[in-house]
């Protein structure tokens, strides 16, 4: 097994919110050690873990950012679906409270 190595990625604040990168770091708990710090123009991530960890982490950060962007766009319809399902199951009618 190859030893863990550290790679650095800088996530530009023009594309990535700090929330997305932090969420990605939380998902990676147990898979790699992620150290986040401020860097010029964004957020710096030092990724220490098995091979491909840095690339996988960048994918996860992108996934989280896309999810956040999509949430802004679709949240009303998405909330309607989830709320109706949850309140119907609980025995409430949406909008009662």
């Amino acid at each position: 097994m190859k030893p863990a190595k550290t790679e650095t990625i800088v996530f530009s604040s023009a594309l990535y919110s700090a929330e997305a990168v932090r969420l990605a770091a939380a998902v990676f708990e147990g898979r790699a050690a992620i150290s986040l710090s401020k860097a010029a123009g964004g957020l710096r991530a030092d990724v220490t873990g098995p091979e491909n960890s840095a690339g996988d982490f960048a994918n996860e950060a992108l996934n989280q950012q896309c999810r956040l962007d999509l949430g802004l766009k679709n949240s009303r319809y998405a909330s309607l679906l989830s709320t109706k399902a949850l309140l119907s199951a609980a025995g409430d009618k949406p909008g009662r409270r």
Binding site: N63, C66, R67, L70, G71, N74, S75, Y77, A78, L81, S82, A85, L86, A89, A90, G91
Partner: peptide, 27 residues
């Protein structure tokens, strides 16, 4: 109670996480 279970944090989290309108590729 039944109501508590239906509105438990895990119940809500799963309802939100499995909402395809909030999944980048699925949407």
């Amino acid at each position: 109670s039944y109501r508590k279970v239906m509105l438990a944090p895990a119940t809500r989290a799963c309802a939100s996480a499995s909402n395809l309108e909030l999944q980048p590729q699925c949407s």
